[in-house]
Design a binder for these strands. Structure first.
Lengths: 121, 121
DNA sequence: TCAAATCCTTTCATTAATCAAGTAAAACAG
DNA sequence: CTGTTTTACTTGATTAATGAAAGGATTTGA
C-alpha cells in the first residue's frame, strides 16, 4: 500500500505542510509533478485527512491547558457531546476512551477562573 | 495584539493550511500580498509555530490508539524522557501533567500485541 | 507476447508568490 | 496643530510553482 517514498512524503509534510511540491519532490527524489500526484493520491485514499497549523495557544491568550476526565452518568452521551460542541472555543480535542463510558477532554482556557467556570457548567 | 483579521487567518489556516495566499486573502478581504505579510508576522511572533498534516493512522497500519497514564517513581524523569524519544514511531504526544510527577502519553500501535510489548518495556 | 495500467519525466500554458514602489491613515514627538 | 515616522495596505512587474498534456519505461496480467 505505502512505499518508502509515500512514508517520506508523509514525514516531510508532517514537518512542514506548506512546502512547495517542487521542494517536496527534491527531498524524495521526484519531480514536483510526480510528488504532487503522490500527494493527491494520499488525499484520495483518505490517508492525508487535512492540512493544519500549530498555534501557540499561550501567545493568543489561552495560557491554561487542561486534560479533563469525563465520566458520563447516563449511557446517552448526546447531552455531553452537544455541550462540547457549543464550547468549541475551549476544546482542542475530545478523546473517546474504550471500556468505561468516559472521555478525555483536552482544553485551553484564558485563565483558571474560566476553567473553573467551565467545570461547573 | 491580534485583531479580527488575524483571528480569521488563524481560523482559515487551521482548517486548511495549504490554501494559497491569494485565496486566504479573499476570505479575509485582503490581497494575497497583504495576507502573506500578516501570516509572516504571525510566524515571526511565534503564534503560528508550524504547518502540518492530519494523517489517518489506522489507514497506515496503526489501528490501536492509546492514552497511557505514566507515573514516574523517581523525580528524575530523564530515563522516561529518553525512552519515549527512542519510541518515536509510536508516540503521538507526551503531555506533562501538573501536580503529581505524571505524564499522559498518547500513542499509536499496529496491534494490541505491540501495545502490550511497549507497556512491558 | 501483446495490451493495459502505472508511474514517472518533459514541455508548456496558466496561475500564484514574491519583490519593489507608492499611497493613505495612524501614531507620535516637537 | 504640524511635520515625521511607522504601519498596513494596494498596484504592477518579475520570478517561480502548478496543472495539463504527451510520451516513455516498467510492471501486470490475459
Amino acid at each position: 500500500m505505502l512505499d518508502h517514498t509515500d512514508r517520506q512524503i508523509i514525514n516531510e509534510l508532517s514537518k512542514n505542510s506548506r512546502i512547495t511540491m517542487k521542494e517536496l519532490g527534491e527531498k524524495v527524489h521526484l519531480t514536483g509533478q510526480a510528488a504532487s500526484a503522490r500527494v493527491a493520491k494520499l488525499e484520495d485514499h483518505g490517508i492525508i485527512e487535512g492540512y493544519s497549523i500549530k498555534v501557540n495557544q499561550s501567545k493568543i491568550g489561552y495560557s491554561v491547558h487542561a486534560i479533563i476526565h469525563i465520566y458520563t452518568k447516563s449511557t446517552n452521551h448526546q447531552p455531553y457531546l452537544s455541550f462540547i460542541k457549543k464550547q468549541e472555543e475551549y476544546v482542542l480535542h475530545n478523546y473517546k476512551i474504550s471500556g468505561e463510558s468516559c472521555y478525555l477532554l483536552e482544553c485551553k482556557f484564558q485563565s483558571n477562573d474560566i476553567l473553573d467556570e467551565f467545570l461547573t457548567t
